[in-house]
């Protein structure tokens, strides 16, 4: 008998606490559009993104009643804040065309890999799940906007200028002061003497890449220890423009950038165990205005979480 009474009191207290905390609510700024919003992509594509992504990736969040219960709403508010900061369709017009394209390809790839929409969200919002048909609509749209490669004399001239400078210039290894990025990562000129572990042709942005691994990476591949990669591993990815020649072959055009992933699960604990850096143009201009630019790298690599955040399946030479 006593036990039952205790239980009743406990439940009453819990209910009280639950009702009381409802006073505390996160502030989720929401814009409501009067009339039609402009079409960003196509009717079909916009409809899919609105249905599945807009709650967290636009200012037009449309929360259900159960999303508004404390403490669930704090979780949702956090998702919305993080979601909007990485991708916000309401601010689409304010980012450059190449960035728009990159974000859209990233978005669709996150869907294909099952990383978006968040699992915790589709649990209660099953209408946000994408069908196979939805995904095909998105893929077809992307294929229609992918840059088509044609022989282009402007690109050839740009390469010729860069090539001439490169073959007469001092090699980077002789630079006195190698560039250092905002997180203290120094440009590593030796990447080009490492062993390539893969190459990619990117139809989404018209570039081609070679991915190199340092000695530790190559040893790890030989010993089948690539998931996770051992500390000291460095992967370097070089990107060039694609150039189509008269024979129809595609070869590297201008050098665009080198990116590094440097494995150290202590030093880089807060950034998924890797140091992330990007150096652009043959002047190796460090990318990233604030130290947290790495969030951008990690978020796009996140679908590879179970693969130590690495996309490339390395081949052995």
């Amino acid at each position: 008998m006593k036990k039952l009474k205790k239980l009743k009191i406990s439940l009453a207290i819990l209910l009280f606490v639950f009702l009381f905390i409802q006073i505390y609510r996160p502030n989720i700024p929401v814009e409501h559009h009067k009339g039609d919003t402009p079409i960003l992509f196509s009717n079909k594509v916009d409809a899919i993104l609105k249905k599945s992504c807009y709650d967290c990736h636009s200012n037009q969040t449309d929360l259900k009643w159960f999303d508004q219960i404390t403490p669930v709403n704090f979780l949702i508010a956090d998702h919305i804040k993080k979601g909007r900061s990485g991708l916000n369709f309401s601010d689409w017009g304010s980012i450059s065309r190449p960035d728009q394209n990159a974000k859209l390809w990233e978005a669709v790839n996150q869907i294909i890999q099952g990383a978006m929409p968040l699992k915790s969200y589709t649990l209660l919002h099953s209408e946000a799940k994408l069908s196979v048909k939805d995904i095909q609509v998105l893929k077809d749209y992307l294929s229609s906007i992918a840059p088509k490669q044609i022989p282009d004399t402007a690109k050839v001239n740009a390469l010729n200028r860069q090539y001439k400078n490169w073959t007469v210039e001092k090699p980077a290894a002789e630079f006195k002061d190698l560039p250092v990025d905002i997180n203290g990562i120094t440009f590593i000129p030796d990447y080009k003497n490492w062993v390539p572990i893969s190459s990619t042709q990117r139809e989404d942005n018209g570039t081609m890449r070679i991915i190199f691994g340092n000695d530790i990476a190559i040893k790890a591949i030989k010993e089948h220890q690539t998931n996770p990669w051992p500390n000291g591993t460095i992967l370097a990815k070089v990107a060039w423009d694609q150039l189509k020649d008269n024979r129809g072959n595609i070869t590297p055009g201008v050098f665009k950038q080198v990116e590094y992933m440097i494995k150290d699960n202590h030093k880089y604990r807060s950034t998924a165990g890797w140091g992330w850096a990007r150096f652009k143009t043959p002047k190796f201009e460090p990318y990233g205005k604030t130290p947290s630019f790495t969030t951008e790298c990690i978020n796009c690599h996140r679908p590879m979480e179970n693969n130590d955040f690495v996309f490339t399946p390395p081949l052995e030479h």
Binding site: V195, Q225, H317
Partner: peptide, 19 residues
Amino acid sequence: NHPENRNREASLPASFEFS
């Protein structure tokens, strides 16, 4: 849970001694 990451079909046979 975490299978090895490797591109098997693209790898060169060790017997070729590329390195």
